[in-house]
Amino acid sequence: MEAAAEKTAETPVSTDSDEDRQLVKRAQAGYLPAYDELVRRYQQRIYATVYHMTSNHEDAADISQETFIKAHQALKSFKGDSSFFTWIYRIAVNKTINFLKQRKNKIHMSLNDLDLNAENDPDLVALVSEKTPRRDLNLSELQERLNEALSKLSEVHRLVVTMHDIQGLPHEEIGKVLGCNTGTVRSRLFYARQQLQAFLSDFIQ
């Protein structure tokens, strides 16, 4: 069952394509609309990763913007050894980790941005009402607890959980971004889930 679940989580993400390479080449030559297209392609994924790491909309927006600006400045040095997606993801992750180190002990939980559609999601409603011992727990409270639990994880473990369980990146891609092998990614993921399970034990049977 877990294998099946793993499979669904690893939603294929098109991270590299000839079109990307062409856009990168044109952007390297100084053609700004090409870089604009690259920003449009990856802004949501970069933003989402940073957001789930920082749990703050403003911080996520600032870091994401800095990431794309930094990437443009360093674009000449991009040799194409990895995909543009992996490369820019690495910049975003490094920036986020540096930011979190500076921000220690200052955590903002932003739950107001929760998409209203989430409350109408039947799977989520069922999950909250059936799988949690506290039937009176609403979605926002559960989410708050979840964010609290996530914030207790170390940065690398939170990153792995964010990239895999929230964003659906495959282990291999996460390994490339973090510069480690797939086995390390898997063990970190397992440990992070165990930690989350312990933090949320009073909510989950």
Binding site: D113, L114, Q143, D165
Partner: peptide
């Protein structure tokens, strides 16, 4: 269950 709970976070949008 943890994975499904984490999936809730996909709904957090700007």
């Amino acid at each position: 269950l943890i994975r499904r709970l984490l999936a809730i976070k996909r709904h957090e949008l700007p």
